[in-house]
Design a protein around this nucleic acid. Structure first.
Length: 460
RNA sequence: GUGGAUGUAGUUCAGUUGGUUAGAACGUCGGAUUGUGGUUCCGAAGGUCGCCGGUUCGAACCCGGUCUUCCACCCCA
């Protein structure tokens, strides 16, 4: 009896073709990160649950994959506790590790743990998978790759500006048209204070985040359901209905939030950031979006989200500033800002827009035909020579029918084959065959390198 | 987590009101062609009908459960 092979829900295998395309995305992103002076780190797939819990809000805690303790994981659980069937309590007793949910929190932990070795401001990038026990959907996986860049140990808004430039640069290289949406948590706090419901900031932001989607009526209804007073809601209306360009919106908002110190701070940050952006060459659209909220708990300043203009599902990139994330690990006064690229969603966007066809996929360039033991000895010379010339070449491992070996080259889209059989050995020759034209050139083995340099290299 | 749909060869899909031996195309393998691929022609292999249980003389088809994938919500990359 054989098991039907399968992989867990929401996870994927990547084929060779997919991997070549994914590597193209990773390489593009990595090159830009390096260009801006960021350096790589990696952290473990699993973290202690104490590191992860409470950083992503209630919803986030539920979505953490927990790792069952090894050995007798029930040793510290009493029969009563088992009988009570309270998953939350029980899991804290039988699990002490979890899979990372994002790269930002492990990074904050890393910074605190290695603060003596780190040179601040610390600019790092990190490209690794993360796991969420979400229900899978289009563009939503349980295992997916994030590509994070963060600067920690600097308050300067130049960092936010640089992130916007990085986003612009990467998507320009990938040929994806995007909109960068920017908001500021301080402004959102200011709004919550202004309408007299400072504690309800999360409910308010979550509700107004949906403004585009469900309309103003439904948003108001949701706010009532969340327990906001009628007065607060009516005070909120002018904020929701702000129109005009960024400058007009910010000026209006400044008047409305005149009483809130935090709100004004947020507005001045936004003004500075947009000032930088206006004076630079940025090709994608950048807009102020007051309805942008972002659920992650730890953001305190700028928040950024990037959407594809042509394909609609969630965002392909998101981030923001967090002032206190290292504080929970015992290191205060260190502010960070960062952004995360969703490689899997970027892949889906490129795929849907058919942008992969233009990418040169690099695979084997020459296949050497295998005719048997004696011929292989002869062919190995060409194999070594071609590789030393930097040509990607492989020798077919078995001496099967020529027809089969050619079909293999065909299926793998290998543009050239090298034939060296009995006849060629006698004349000290080899045959180079162009698979798309069918044209064959016969030459002395000694002339192979000049043929490759003068003819083949110019075509490949 | 809530609600809805889905599952049949490797892949994409047919399959009549429940009725003998579940089909096609593409792909795979073999041959026509023992040293020349893509095209063509001929042939073959490949299925516990997602899984478990129930109803029935009889189930791919009806019922229950379960898992997968997809969609909406929640949330998010």
């Amino acid at each position: 009896m054989s098991l039907k092979p399968s992989i867990p829900k929401g996870t994927r295998d990547f084929s060779t073709d997919e991997m070549l395309r994914r590597e193209y995305i990773f390489d593009t992103i990595k090159n830009v990160f390096r260009l801006y002076g960021y350096q790589p780190i990696e952290t473990p797939a699993m973290e202690n649950l104490s590191t992860l819990l409470g950083k992503y809000g209630e919803e986030g805690d539920k979505l953490l994959f927990r790792i069952l303790n090894s050995g007798d994981f029930l040793s510290s659980v009493s029969d009563d506790e088992l009988g009570n069937r309270e998953p939350a309590k029980l899991s804290s007793k039988i699990c002490e590790k979890g899979l990372r949910y994002d790269l930002t929190v492990p990074f904050a932990r890393y910074v605190v743990q290695h603060r003596d070795e780190i040179i601040f401001p610390f600019k790092r990038y990190q490209i690794q998978p993360v796991w969420r026990a979400d229900r899978p959907q289009k563009g939503r996986y349980r295992e997916f790759f994030q590509c994070d860049v963060d600067v920690i140990g600097s308050d300067s808004l130049l960092n936010e500006y640089e992130l916007v430039k990085i986003v612009d640069d990467i998507f320009k290289r990938l040929n994806i048209a995007t909109v960068i949406k920017i908001n500021n948590r301080k402004v959102l706090s200011g709004i919550a204070a202004f309408i007299g419901e400072p504690d309800k900031i999360t409910d308010i932001t979550v509700a107004i985040d949906k403004l585009d989607k469900i309309g103003i009526e439904a948003v108001n209804a949701e706010l009532i359901a969340k327990g906001l007073s009628q007065k607060a809601i009516s005070k909120l209306q002018p904020v929701l209905q702000l129109t005009g360009n960024t400058e007009i919106k910010l000026t209006r908002l400044e008047q409305l939030l005149a009483q809130s110190e935090t709100g004004l701070k947020g507005i001045s940050e936004l003004k500075t950031l947009f000032g930088y952006i206006e004076n630079s060459s940025i090709s994608c659209e950048v807009e102020l979006d007051l309805t942008l909220a972002r659920g992650l708990n730890y953001y305190t300043g700028a928040i950024i989200e990037v959407k594809s203009k042509d394909v609609s599902f969630g965002s392909i990139c998101g981030g923001g500033r967090y002032d206190n994330l290292t504080g929970v690990f015992g290191m205060d006064g260190v502010s960070g800002v960062g952004i995360s690229f969703g490689a899997d969603r970027i892949y889906d966007v490129l795929n849907q827009l058919n942008l992969f066809s233009e990418i040169k996929v690099s695979s084997t360039e020459v296949l050497i035909v295998n005719f048997g033991e004696k011929e292989t000895q002869y062919a190995l010379k060409s194999l070594d020579l071609l590789r030393s010339l930097g040509v990607r070449v492989e020798l077919y491992p078995d001496a099967v029918k020529l027809k089969k070996q050619m079909s293999y080259a065909d299926a793998k889209k290998i543009p050239y084959i090298l034939i060296a059989g009995e006849d060629e050995i006698m004349k000290n020759n080899i045959i180079f065959k162009n698979m798309s034209s069918g044209e064959q050139s016969s030459m002395l083995l000694a002339d192979l390198d000049s043929f490759v340099n003068n003819v083949i290299k110019k075509i490949l």
